[in-house]
Design a protein around this nucleic acid. Structure first.
Lengths: 116, 116
DNA sequence: CCTCAATATTGATCATCATCAATGTATGGA
DNA sequence: TCCATACATTGATGATGATCAATATTGAGG
């Protein structure tokens, strides 16, 4: 960040002024990156998409292993990452595990981009 | 996706019906994941934040190597990833390279989450 | 209890990534 | 023309991640 607003665009000698504190702290950045890391995989995006598209609002693992071309352990692994990121909620009923979108989580994630 | 809406939530025997096409195609997912991959690194988030916070709307590389605790080649590498993802714009003037947010890119990325 | 079905966990492997040192490229000034 | 500056590229390395096979766990039913 340049210290001299006057020089911001016009001149060509205003570069490399040390500047103020970083807009995003290292810890905040690390925290926010965790959520985007969870979204940074095609199969996880598809998992979210499938769960979201489900009219009931929830899907069990066996509904998710089919559309994706992945083994069951891999799907479980991806689901865990999405749960840990706060994007999915897991509820076990009987033998099945039902996954649903955490209400507002996607909107909140979108908000992270606005407040960068 | 279950085929029988009647059974979606109430019953406990409605699991694992093959279901319709995935809500998000494999190609779409791969494409969208690319953008989130670019956001999935703390230092890249801080780069975006710094560029965004800049009153002039642009920063040169030397303004970015300081706040982050990274070498110049690493910062250049991250900037390239952000440019390739369509989030940053690069303009070379003289010896310096100026990076600025692509207008609407963050908003568009936020939109990706809404249309999962 | 015993077994089966659904899901989770572990361990291993291969690929991708973040980082740096060294080098290359281009631009401006003496 | 030569040098210094700003940035990019390359090559190598250690770390993280995605995936699977095998195994463990948990719950339902007989």
């Amino acid at each position: 960040m340049n210290l001299l607003p006057v020089l911001e665009t016009a001149t060509d000698e205003a570069c490399c002024v040390p500047g103020g504190p970083p807009a995003l702290s290292a810890e905040d950045a690390k925290q926010k990156a965790l959520v985007f890391k969870a979204l940074a995989d095609p199969n996880r995006l598809r998992l979210l998409s499938i769960v979201k598209a489900e009219a009931s609002g929830e899907s069990c693992v066996c509904d998710l292993t089919g559309p994706l071309d992945l083994g069951q352990p891999t799907v479980s692994h991806h689901l865990k990452i999405l749960v840990d990121a706060g994007l999915l909620h897991r509820e076990k009923r009987g033998t099945w595990a039902y996954y649903s979108l955490v209400p507002g989580a996607l909107e909140q994630t979108a908000g992270l981009l606005a407040t960068l």
